[in-house]
Design a protein around this nucleic acid. Structure first.
Lengths: 308, 308
DNA sequence: TTATATATTGCGTATAATGCAATAAGCAAC
DNA sequence: GTTGCTTATTGCATTATACGCAATATATAA
């Protein structure tokens, strides 16, 4: 019989029409997803999609199953909502750690949903440098951290993807800051950069320069993404930051966004210790985050971020 | 994530409120079903039913999940119907073997559904003694048999339950046949019985007398369930037959149905060789039977049996 | 008390799922 | 053509899961 997990994977295939990407989205290997497809087809006795080395094309039967999968998963989400009200409301204190940047993007919606379901639950929010946020899970009694998604997944940590922020490269708008006459629109090499002191964004930027074989000229190092925008606005150099940080900055109009299409995304996730996955509170929060994660992307698109 | 197989098992639990019986219906062991319940509860993070040595009581959350399970499985059945139309219609010849009794109960609906889906498929129907019908699968080129469900499941045979016929004990109505003055309403011992020559019904009756420690007095042996009713009507003895046979018999008004509540059911199933489960045609017919099996029970209740 | 019925759990086994690495095959650029 | 990139699939070894049997614990009935 059909497993909703498999149905969800098939939906990713329908969206992307690309097995490899769908596998990434589903957090399984392409081989697993390939086998899921054959399993579904054997179970349903129908060809769901034509597949060859060119890619994937969903069949008519596949579209029928897609609808079924969508309905089922929507119903399941609704069921979870209904069931949430049957759960004994959680009590105690929930400790969340996140960066200032993240806090005002995710926390409002997360907490307002949480208050509805579990009014008794006290929430303690700590903000700080996200660079080594994951360490807090082990030592500081923190239940969850909202952190940049680490490149290689830690064995002990379970996470829910919250959002993928596009990165943007920014330069000062004021023509009075010519940055020594460098033509920074065409080359990266040796451009003076304002960089975060450390953390995931820092290494992402270093990697980006490496793949472009450009020398990274670190002009100044700053703690906190927001401050970076200010520095750039004042002509201290160029920078790469999540675009959302630019949009929300009071200096937004003092920088220009350069056209760099190959910048990676800056993925943010809600993380907790895998060893605690069984605890009702951990599971409840995790499910909640999983359910509302898609709405963050919507919020991002509509620039509706903290009007709660 | 939820597997529809588990959801179906939970539905059986909701129907019976009894783990052991639900396990039987689902064809799994009670231990498996028990673990399915805990798995579902862990997955959904809710208590679905209270369970102790007295039995099972479904919770409010359980009822919510029951509705979800029903919806999902209904949608799945609808999906399968839709997909069936996408399948390349089957060709060739399908050979079915069944008893005369069974043929006019199941075959009409089965074949009319089949014709709709696969007009090209030729159907060859053979009728005969169901006693050793299963042997036909091995030797006689028969694809399916409709047969009494064997007590211990054969390793090589896969089956779909079609219906459970209640058995009924019947006696002649005509007071001119006092059967030697025996008070057969209170005791079974030594009552003159009309029995089928052999087959599942025969052994079921023998078992029934054994558990009641009553001597089985075989007055006459008859081939064919229908004829048994005639014999009883004519005063040759008492008999135990599927109640449906009585209801459909032209001698229906010449026998009376005795009040025996502990008679077992007479289960009928559609069987095929497990080794052929992978063949598209076998799978299609099997799925079709699985989907329409519940309607047989409805037909039985409403006595609507062969108006097709 | 004994017998029957209930659900659960320990344990060994069988089945299935998973990811890695290798493979095959199309496509594009040179 | 050839090389390099991308695509999906498959062999293989590992791990996880599912399963049923048998034993257990507990309640109900005789």
């Amino acid at each position: 019989m059909i497993d909703l997990k498999d149905a969800a994977q098939f939906l990713r295939v329908c969206e992307t029409e690309n097995l490899t990407r769908a596998a990434l989205l589903s957090k399984v290997s392409p081989s697993t997803l390939s086998r899921t497809l054959t399993k579904l087809e054997k179970e349903l006795n129908v060809k769901l999609c034509y597949r060859d080395q060119k890619g994937i094309v969903i069949t008519k039967a596949g579209r029928l199953f897609e609808r079924f999968a969508q309905d089922s998963l929507r119903n399941f989400a609704l069921l979870q909502q209904s069931l949430a009200q049957e759960i004994a409301p959680l009590k105690g204190t929930l400790k969340i750690y996140c960066s200032v940047s993240a806090s005002y993007i995710f926390i409002p919606r997360l907490l307002s949903e949480l208050r509805l379901l579990h009014p008794e639950l006290e929430i303690s929010l700590e903000t700080g440098d996200p660079a080594n946020a994951l360490d807090f899970l082990n030592h500081d009694g923190i239940d969850f951290v909202i952190a940049p998604k680490p490149k290689e997944l830690n064995e002990n940590i379970e996470l829910v993807d919250l959002i993928a922020f596009p990165l943007a490269m920014i330069a000062p708008r004021n023509p009075a800051y010519p940055l020594n006459g460098l033509d920074y629109t065409n080359t990266l090499d040796n451009i003076p950069m304002v960089l975060p002191e450390r953390g995931k964004l820092r290494t992402d930027i270093e990697d980006y320069f490496k793949t472009h074989k450009a020398k990274l000229n670190v002009l100044s190092q700053v703690a906190g993404h927001e401050a970076i925008v200010s520095m750039v606005a004042l002509g201290f150099g160029l920078a790469i930051v999540p675009r959302i940080i630019v949009d929300l900055s009071p200096f937004k109009n003092d920088v220009i966004i350069l056209d760099k299409k190959d910048l990676p995304d800056f993925d943010v996730a809600l993380c907790h210790l895998k060893s605690r996955s069984g605890e009702p509170c951990i599971k409840a929060i995790n499910d909640l985050a999983f359910n509302i994660a898609p709405s963050f992307a919507q919020d991002l698109r509509s620039r509706k971020l903290n009007n709660f």
